[in-house]
Design a protein around this nucleic acid. Structure first.
Lengths: 201, 201
DNA sequence: CTGATTGTAGCGAATAAATAGCGAACTTGG
DNA sequence: CCAAGTTCGCTATTTATTCGCTACAATCAG
């Protein structure tokens, strides 16, 4: 995970700019700040730094770069060895598989946040009160995905997403609860669920 | 948090106005304050900011905009900002709580590994096939904890742990499956479950 | 030592997508 | 009713992404 001189300059520029202005620079601003004349170069730098895990940004979104704090501080408590599979009644398959897992495997390079779940609206989906859902910030969703949506601007829920003509059906995963039907215009998708995290006391 | 220059100007105007007057501005006041001539533009800005979780507002109500405090997004790659709670039918409570979550919060400084779950033996516990269980390596367990155990040296399972006199009962969380009873000597505890991680395709 | 390979650094142009804006018509809460 | 908020269709601008290309340095196999 070596960092080059040039890459450090890029990082420094990014954090200074963001610090000063409260929003991150556009590629053009980065280019002029670093004396570059092509946006492609900026793009390449940013992509490389992102792959090294030093930056985070959302795809195709303006000024969405975030400089991450150096991760060396607390050592790898975040990547777990994956020992194999377990199944009731069979021995652990000690497979050589992905061999480790971390939140990064779920997050990828998306912009993700967490929400703590209250209530049982997704119980049949095996998401229960107290779980944390990991949500990618996006405003589109595909058929059947679990999403976080605002209905009529103030009503936030966790539901499965289905299109029905001009309307949208938001389907709770709990037989006891009724789906919400609403015109597409009044449903604002906040993000879609990439995964969940549960912690036992 | 992916905020653009213009969006920051809008936010700044809103907080200043509200600060000064004790109530939030009407769309027309916002428009003139920002040099805009169409209320539609104001509306779009407010809606976008709301979707980014920086504002709160009631539908079709005058001067109902609330600027939310900036959620300090100290997100490491595996540390996710915790935005609040979500429940069916209620707005997101924008809580100031632990403010972020990561695998480290589950792991602490214990020795932990992950196993991929196969089968439905813990379905009633909302642990399903494909989930990863995060397991602390230990050889003791307390009453009722979910553990990974070897029975008779080769049979690894995920079960709840109960002592019954000189015997041990390993209880699956699935009504269709029977518990295992075994003498304490033939049950080797491999670890106990601290949490689970699920990734949606 | 030499040549092949790889990774970093850079350019300009074309494209694609999100953001920002307009006016007019429509809806809603008080 | 009426003023404030909302939605619609439509531009324009800003910003990000992708492509093909050059150049330089470090590394590695033969």
């Amino acid at each position: 995970m070596a960092i080059t001189r040039r890459q450090k300059e890029v990082i420094d520029f990014l954090s200074n700019f963001t610090q000063k202005n409260g929003y991150s620079p556009s590629y053009e601003e980065i280019a002029s700040g670093l004396g570059l004349s092509s946006l492609a170069t900026v793009h390449k730098h940013v992509t490389n730094l992102q792959n090294k895990g030093l930056l985070q940004r959302a795809h195709n979104r303006s000024r969405s770069i975030d400089v991450l704090p150096p991760r060396s501080s607390k050592k790898g408590f975040d990547r777990l060895p994956l020992m194999g599979r377990i199944a009731a009644g069979q021995p652990i398959e000690a497979v050589e598989m992905a061999e480790s897992i971390s939140l990064g495997d779920i997050i990828g390079n998306r912009e993700v946040f967490a929400l703590e779940v209250r209530g049982d609206s997704m119980r049949d989906e095996h998401i229960v009160s107290g779980d944390y859902v990991l949500v990618e910030r996006t405003n589109t969703a595909r058929e059947g995905e679990i999403i976080v949506a605002l209905v009529d601007g103030y009503d936030a829920t966790l539901k499965r997403f289905y299109r029905e003509g001009a309307n949208i059906r938001l389907q709770p995963s709990n037989k006891d609860m009724a789906p919400i039907y609403a015109p597409a215009a009044s449903v604002a998708i906040q993000g879609k669920v990439l995964g969940i995290l549960r912690k036992y006391a």
